[in-house]
Design a protein around this nucleic acid. Sequence first.
DNA 1: TCCCAATATATACTGAGTATATTTAAGGGC
DNA 2: GCCCTTAAATATACTCAGTATATATTGGGA
Lengths: 212, 212
Amino acid sequence: MDEKIDRRTRKRLATRQSISDTATRLFLERGFDSVTIDEIAAAADVGRMTVFNHFPRKEDMFFDREEEIQALAFDAIRKRGPGVSPIEATRKLAHDLVTQDHEFVMLSGDTSWFIKTAMASEALKARAREMRDDFTRALAIVLADASNQPTGDPNAHLAAGLIVSTWNVAFSEAQKLFDCTRDAGEAKRCFLAVIDRGIAGAVAALAKTAYA
Amino acid sequence: MDEKIDRRTRKRLATRQSISDTATRLFLERGFDSVTIDEIAAAADVGRMTVFNHFPRKEDMFFDREEEIQALAFDAIRKRGPGVSPIEATRKLAHDLVTQDHEFVMLSGDTSWFIKTAMASEALKARAREMRDDFTRALAIVLADASNQPTGDPNAHLAAGLIVSTWNVAFSEAQKLFDCTRDAGEAKRCFLAVIDRGIAGAVAALAKTAYA
DNA sequence: TCCCAATATATACTGAGTATATTTAAGGGC
DNA sequence: GCCCTTAAATATACTCAGTATATATTGGGA
């Protein structure tokens, strides 16, 4: 499968990975803002332009799994069981991720550092907001598509907005609670409680439409 | 009242206004991104540092009425009628603003240029997102306070998130519709329809709490 | 081997935002 | 009016992300 990659591509990916690893290490040591692109380039032993070649923006060296998360959510909607509404599918996804201790909803370890580092930088927070908006827009399209509604349907945008808002609050509150109590179980219960409330609200908002 | 302002303050405000007016004119002529701070300073006939003195960030010369909007929303909640829940108060505000053709929900004229200019600039969109998040956080505090709930109550954050998300979608969809049809009446009906749906969802989500 | 295209790199630039020191001018006490 | 303090404006020099462009290097294919 992926074995027949030519040397050129292999070297390209190796360079990219080297830059990414170096950047991550430096961010870990000193935070995002106080590391400059020049330092990353020097530490990774590549030219400055090479860094921009692989990562158009500095923030891209930090957030490199956006697509994975989007795919996870979209798959949950597209491959939902029969009789499950698109909105309910997002609720089920939350419960499934918690049940299987998925890395995206883990509270401790790498995830904790990741969130703390992101929250300590205005640039990273701005990028996170941008990704959230992009995701909301894409989610509206997926929802409309999965419900055989026209693309751009206002209700799809409302549903997407309410769902993303709910997930966002659920994440933040769970993280906040874990930081206070260091009790992962309690944090997860809080996460699901907010999800259940918010999704119930979204279902009520979109009652009598194809989305709920 | 405001008459006993000394000359120093008067000059300060005049300088600020001059910079703001100059910047607005230039943004109107050529868009936000293609106007540099140096050009604004030169056109307003002040030093470059003076601009940063009054407006720490370039975006602040564009968004200068944030507080007004926040006050409008918070007042609607704090001064709501008896028997009106905090969440319902935000719904009532939307209807009131539309009824009185308030400038913040006007579709044509300055508002239209304002939104188009903001949407054409990544920097302005980023700042708008930041303001939205700030507003959401502040709204959560006001909601909790107005409902005699503890500050930081997860339900307050959920309510704030759902409300802001609803308003955001309502604005966008109404603006989009107006751009297509140029029918202000239809756009306003769309705005209120989304508001009513979204707020109904928020009420359902927060059922049996102090917020709904 | 030679040629083409992808990748890496060097150089020079733009423009926002910061740090800091200096100048200018207004208000207050005498 | 004169002096002193302080706010505001300014000048200068800097940092750093991001762009433009030209050149060098290297792997793949003929």
